[in-house]
Design a protein around this nucleic acid. Sequence first.
DNA 1: GCGACAG
DNA 2: ATCTTGTCGC
Length: 230
Amino acid sequence: MSFWPTTTDELILEQKRLATLSFSRWEKPPEPFISAGVFVCYGRNVAGAGKKGDLGWATAVALFPDGSVKVFRVSGRATFDYIPGLLALRDGPLLEKAVLGLGIRPEILFVNATSRDHPYRAGLALHLGYKLDVPTVGITRNPLIAEGSLPGIKRGDKFELRVGNETVAFWLRTQDNKAPLVVHPGYRLDGDSAIEVVLFYTEKYRTPEPLRLARKSARLYRAGVEDQAV
DNA sequence: GCGACAG
DNA sequence: ATCTTGTCGC
C-alpha cells in the first residue's frame, strides 16, 4: 500500500505536483481486455453519512472479456469528512485497497470522481490511477468546477467542459433521452479515448458496466448480502 | 462574509 | 454519499 496524504495541506501539495506531470497516452486496445470499476458507499438512513468515523463499504469489480467478473470487497472507517476538492483524503486509501485486492491489473479503471476538473487540476480519478499505475476514467453526475453547455439528447452527443480555456472533461449522453454524465479523462487518458471507452461500456446502461457492477456490489455488501456473483 | 462545490 | 418535496425562485 502506498502513502496517501493525511492532511489537507499534504494533499493539496500532492495535487499541485500531480497536475504538473505528463504521462504516456493510453489507447483502447483492439484485443479483448480486462476493465474494472471501484466504488465506496456509506450508511443508508444515516444523516450526513460519509463523515469522519463513518463505516464505508468499498468494492472493486473486474470485468473480463467473456462477461465474467471478479469481486473484491473491503470496509473501513472514513478518516475525513467529505470536502469538495479533497475527496482523496476520505476515499483514496479504501478505494486503492479495493482495487489492489482484486489481484489483477486491469487495462482501464472507472472511478466515481473527477480528474482535471478540480481546483488544482488533480482530482481523485487522476490521483488513484497514478498511484495504481492503471489508466482511469472518472465518471460523475456533475462537474466540480468546470463549465459547459448540455449535450444533445442522442447517445454519443457530447459537449466540452472547460476550466478557463482548458477542456478538462465532457458532458456525454450515453443513452437517448437519459441524463448525461460527466466523463473525466483520468490517468493517461485523453478525451477521445475516454469517450470511446465509456461508449463501449454503455451499450445497455447509462453508467459504464464495470462501475455499475461495483456500485451494485458495494450496496449489497452494505446490506449484508454475501453474494459473490456481483 | 456567505454559499456553492466530485462523493 | 443519502433522503426527500414537489415542479417554484435569487
